[in-house]
Design a binder for these strands. Structure first.
Length: 484
DNA sequence: TAGGATTGCAA
DNA sequence: TATTGCAATCCTA
């Protein structure tokens, strides 16, 4: 028996994305055994408060131990998994440390932003009501649709399965001509920030102004982590008031600093590494701006405007997601014909990328799974489906997983190595956040000089034999925004 | 009260 | 008709 074992993690590695990896579900699935539920042993009507049926409780406890062992006895015949042994199990303790450490927030700062938002929201609400000649719930898509398209007779956009679509896209198209649309966009924006990021964070912070997220290690289909209660992987970045929210993430001690490290364009780099495309590799070898390079290919000239670079950037990212010409037109303001041209140009100039995707899909059709550079697998349902929509969707999943998943493998390995290093030498600095391609540390100033280059070096050298290096940018400051 | 639907935030 | 997530809100069952 190994010193540590986790039936849930082992099952996740076998088939990520599968729902129900808990003991109850696994007992049912593997042994057709129905576990006693907690509510079965605590009947508050029959028994007094906090009393339990002891006999039932004994069985309940036995079940947990017995089924765990039984599952282990079955899973030990699975093929050995390096991902499980060398990544997920070592990572588990790292995540525990990060969750317990938590991140300090500036309560006053958040409250202050909250007041500002409330004022904006109140003002916008008044203005919206005065235009619509009616008070209604602006947070209700249904009511917004009725006001805009029935009462005010604005030109209708897309529809959803329940009624008019009133998402930001639709409103954005109306905004030029009809000020109410812009005001609803702004109202939504500020409401989102207030309820999710201001009130949400303040509610969940401890008395020492610290938030302790939970990293879920076994939910994503690609091998990424996810973060809940609170989700610290979707905190707004940059613009306007939204950007100020990151200023409220601060070090535990006033003397400390936050230091952030992020992999630079890691997914596009991985596309180069995994496809062995000469032009893509060459661009990175020469330390070129990859969006600029793609733009030069697409537009066939060296003189690239800001807009052209933006288009190329959308193509670079879109390709990783298996984008279609139509999809690209939803992202940037071009015709479908132009979109097709841009995508064709991309593949024309990075031909090995197309080969890589073709091979990946072909492989997947045969084996029903795709895998990362480190061997993490994802089974893809629907890859051989007769329904073209389902099949296309499966193909996008197949294309994306090896890239997104390899990126996840890399940062997980980095986290394990960094944590090992910090503990081995008794550093006081702590890893506190992971946001897919970024790690944030609470650092004591005296450790900065040593740790900054060390962490960067660990992160950049996950595979020393790669044809191009991984690149890590870093920054520091008195809050998360400054550190970025 | 549970859960689907819509919306929008991140990498 | 671009991947992976989480969560607030509305609203129906």
């Amino acid at each position: 028996m190994p010193q540590f074992y986790d039936t849930l993690l082992r099952e996740y590695i076998e088939n990520p994305g599968q729902r129900g990896l808990g003991l109850d579900a696994l007992a049912d699935k593997h042994f057709d055994y129905e576990m006693i539920s907690y509510s079965d042993i605590t009947d508050k009507k029959k028994l007094g408060f906090e009393e339990v049926d002891l006999k039932q409780a004994a069985i309940y406890s036995w079940e947990d131990v017995y089924m765990t062992k039984k599952l282990y006895d079955k899973q030990k015949w699975y093929f050995p998994s390096k991902i499980y042994d060398e990544i997920e199990i070592p990572l588990l303790g790292v995540l525990v440390d990060m969750e317990l450490t938590g991140v300090r927030i500036d309560r006053d700062k958040l409250k202050w932003i909250g007041i500002l938002l409330e004022n904006h929201i109140r003002e916008l609400q008044k203005e919206i009501y005065s235009i619509s000649w009616e008070e209604f719930n602006i947070s209700s898509p249904k009511q917004v649709g009725e006001i805009l398209f029935e009462k005010l007779n604005l030109p209708k956009g897309k529809k959803t399965k329940t009624g008019y679509s009133v998402n930001a896209d639709v409103l954005w198209n109306l905004a030029k001509e009809f000020p109410i649309a812009q005001k609803i966009i702004d109202f939504r924006h500020y409401s989102k920030l207030l309820s999710t990021y201001i009130e949400g964070l303040l509610d969940i912070a401890t008395q020492n102004d610290t938030v302790h997220t939970s990293y879920n290690q076994a939910v994503t289909a690609t091998g990424r982590l996810s973060s809940t209660a609170p989700n610290l992987q979707n905190i707004p970045s940059w613009d306007g008031i939204a950007g100020e929210i990151r200023e409220a993430f601060i070090p535990h001690n006033p003397k400390d600093i936050l230091v952030a490290f992020d992999y630079s364009q890691v997914e596009v780099r991985l596309l180069a590494i995994m496809s062995w495309d000469t032009n893509l590799l060459e661009a990175f070898k020469r330390k070129r701006d990859i969006h600029q390079v793609t733009a030069e290919f697409i537009f066939g000239k060296k003189d690239i405007s800001g807009t052209m670079r933006k288009f190329a950037k959308a193509v670079n990212f879109g390709v990783i997601y298996g984008i279609s010409p139509f999809g690209l037109t939803q992202m940037i303001d071009i015709t479908q014909k132009e979109a097709r041209l841009y995508i064709d140009k991309f593949y024309e100039n990075y031909p090995k990328v197309r080969d890589f995707f073709d091979t990946t899909i072909e492989d997947c059709r045969e084996k029903n799974y795709v895998k990362t550079l480190f061997g993490r697998r994802r089974y893809i349902g629907g890859i051989n489906d007769r329904n073209a929509i389902i099949k296309k969707s499966a193909e996008r999943e197949a294309i994306n997983m090896p890239i997104q998943g390899t990126s996840a493998d890399i940062i997980k390995i980095a986290m394990i190595r960094i944590q090992k290093f910090l503990k081995e030498w008794n550093y006081k600095s702590k890893m506190i956040l992971q946001v897919h391609d970024e790690l944030v540390f609470n650092m004591t100033p005296d450790e900065k000089e040593v740790l900054k280059p060390k962490i960067k070096s660990i992160m950049e050298n996950i595979f020393p034999d790669a044809p191009i290096p991984l690149l890590v940018d870093s920054g520091e400051g008195k809050n998360w925004k400054q550190a970025k």
